[in-house]
Amino acid sequence: MSEQSLAIRKFSDLANPTRFLGLAERLLPWFSGLTALLFAVGLYLCFTTEGDYQQGETVRIMYVHVPAAWLSMMCYTVMALSALGTLVWRHPLADVSARAAAPIGACFTFLALVTGSLWGKPMWGTWWVWDARLTSVFVLFLMYLGLIALNRAMDDPGKAAKVSAILILVGFVNIPIIKFSVEWWNTLHQPASVMRLDGPKIDPEFLRPLLIMAVAFSMLFFTLHIAAMRNEIWRRRVTSMRRQAARNVGAVGTGMEGPNA
């Protein structure tokens, strides 16, 4: 067997929900511990570094706002990859992944919007403006809510998986719009100052806590995503076992039980 087919085999082995549950049980304690440690270091730096000469203490809001905004987009990207997995490869865990990620993404987007607003009032003099960046992030938040509602509204899980995968992929067009909105249009929101081709434009004093908080938020996302996927697999097992129990009762009722039934 070639190395490539071995790699594909290893990846497809993970498609087995039982194997995934075993892996999740092993990973979750380590991921949770690492997340807590990163948050402890990050929060310590958030409150011990200098304030900005222009923004003053409000620069500390950035250490929460920027990672939450990054994660809101990363979470949707994970959902888009999962949607591809559902539609193209029919990967058994792909829909589980997309479904589990939606509420987490909605929370990060909510956090980015609220902390951005709390920073905007003292710095811009307003809680909200309908500029391209803020509006596109608000649209992302509505998309998350819509996908959560859609998944809960449809009874047929197979149909719900397909419909939501298509919607996720259509909605993915919003991610580059969010990212480049500050370059394509004249916005009140400032352009990128960390993820730039010519390197970060902010002082290392602010960059350090920002990056550690970004890694902490990313680890939080992975931990919660794995745990939420595990919960979703359990939920599907409960549903299938209840259906099995109902079938058994039906078979007993019609006298069809037994090995020849």
């Binding site: 409000t58 902390t115 709390l118 920073w119 003292p122």
Partner: peptide
């Protein structure tokens, strides 16, 4: 602007 900072971390 301590109130805004505290509110942000509380919401988070």
């Amino acid at each position: 602007h301590a109130g805004y900072v505290i509110a942000s971390y509380a919401v988070a």
